[in-house]
Design a protein around this nucleic acid. Sequence first.
DNA 1: CGAATTAAATGAAACGTTTCAATTGCGATC
DNA 2: GATCGCAATTGAAACGTTTCATTTAATTCG
Lengths: 337, 337
Amino acid sequence: MVQKRVNIRDVAARAGVSVGTVSRVINRKPVSAETLALVNRAMREIGFTPSAVARSMRTRSTLAVGFVINDISNMLFATVAKAAEKVLQEQSYSLLIANTDNDPGRERLIIESLIQRRVDGLMIAVTDETDEETRSLLRSVDFPVTLLDRQMDGPFDSVCDDHAPGMRKAIRYLFDLGHRDIGLITGADNVRPGRERARGFREAFAEQGLDVPERWLRQGRLDALYGYAQAFEILSASPRPTALVAGGNQIFAGVLRAIRRLGLVLPRDLSIISCDDVDLTVLTDPPVTVISRNLDEVGRVAAEILLRRIRGNEAGERYCHVVPTELILRESCAQVR
Amino acid sequence: MVQKRVNIRDVAARAGVSVGTVSRVINRKPVSAETLALVNRAMREIGFTPSAVARSMRTRSTLAVGFVINDISNMLFATVAKAAEKVLQEQSYSLLIANTDNDPGRERLIIESLIQRRVDGLMIAVTDETDEETRSLLRSVDFPVTLLDRQMDGPFDSVCDDHAPGMRKAIRYLFDLGHRDIGLITGADNVRPGRERARGFREAFAEQGLDVPERWLRQGRLDALYGYAQAFEILSASPRPTALVAGGNQIFAGVLRAIRRLGLVLPRDLSIISCDDVDLTVLTDPPVTVISRNLDEVGRVAAEILLRRIRGNEAGERYCHVVPTELILRESCAQVR
DNA sequence: CGAATTAAATGAAACGTTTCAATTGCGATC
DNA sequence: GATCGCAATTGAAACGTTTCATTTAATTCG
């Protein structure tokens, strides 16, 4: 039925050597020149491809790492995955990418599947840092785990963005332009980006001895729908804030929709700052000031840390690499009149 | 050193049954109620997780399929991958996603790695349909292959978008508004979307008995840089075309940059149509008319076809599922004065 | 020339499952 | 009481590698 795949034994027979020798050839271990030629010819002639499955079985290493993300349709994911994949591919690791769609149940199933698949490591942006089930599941695994812009108690490395200082810088910039009534729409406290952005927001006001405008601080989800709904509400108020920060690139898309809907003109009617330097922020009119971060570095460093952990099998202390943010000034903010 | 993982034999010993019985429990095959309880308890107590590697070794099925894409940072990819993953996950298949970055060499390495990993199937958007090496590599594999919006001779199924008719509709619409000098920037002929869009473009003119404005038909790459460069050149000409079609969502980002740079006002100075209904086209000012396609369907159907092929092992004729496009009218096109 | 050393190749065991032919136990039937 | 039928379980083989203790062959040295 299924035509038998040729295996290392077939190659050995054909080349007139032992399987051990063929194995050595496959793994580029020293063999005599003539044997090498013999074996290589045999492999070519019968069309042999070594089975990574069998190899994994024997070596107990799959050369695969999981990459679990809570929202694959957020375009920022691509940058991180790409950078990570580049590092890993060089060492012949493959990426097993899975999308949880912000569903903790699905997240657990995915992690369990990766455990069964015996991945050598895992990079993950969990859906909810406070989810006890996920946390204990992750603590129980016997391969290294690197968190992507997340913080959780446990034996995990992490690579995080410096959201809070970035947000402080942004708010200070608005202060300098004379703004005091400033809104922020971002994710909830159970996930690092939302939490840190809100923290930076609060700290900026505290630094100036100002009250935090709590009614304009909205922490819910990081998606466009939430951004739209909250922005619409905030901007329909009267008086409305003079500036609004979109704490997330998808939130920004929603905010922009609300602005268009309400017919507000930027930056005359409202000053806007967003997070992450995506096409939309540059190409909208006017171009939007953003708190930018280096996602390439996140992916690269996360992969490097993970690899080191896999290699070294070091039980040493945990890294928490923090990637700086940068405020990119454009034309979406105006002096308050 | 590496603490021994518990295996099915340990479970069997603990439960006082044979390994065959434990296997039956794992695979939900009928066993007596008491044995079931016994085995389940043993598994829980010693923390057993079956090894997918060993299972694959024995069953010769990995429950994994490759998903190879030429540009992971194109956000459209996410939609397709997500839809495909959803279908596959339900049948406990995992997705092995890899990015070729439009590099045929890397593409080959990736395919070879997937062959070694013994994936059960492959979905792929090849970098270059005319690349003979890739083609023969793909023909040689012994698992089913589904092409994503690509056409190649060989035993492959495919799921394609209906680019040409979509483009014809778009051009006819521009004709109706009085445009005759129309530009198109899109990908080269060696990849289906570029080829088909150009074909639709030509056909639309032919239908009306008009000459194709070859000097304004640019086929190169599908990225933003190319879009920018070509748009800048076309729009700097004098006289310039009255309408321009961006044949690709990333090209559109480049085109928009050029438009901003040249200070053109839409749709007064120029009418614009783009492909694919992404945030940028809706949220830019004015919102842009687009040729939209259902990427969710592409991913879903591709996965379904692949699964059927994997299951049925049918050597039957090849499918080529075509997903329709739709012209979504917005405010970026004006009557020519 | 025999012994010692080195290099190259061998072949069996192990990795953790599934599968399937064979075995066991037990109540029903003659 | 022997036989049959059936359900449940057993246990060994197989999947395709790597590894490592041995064996074999070739070379060097006293």
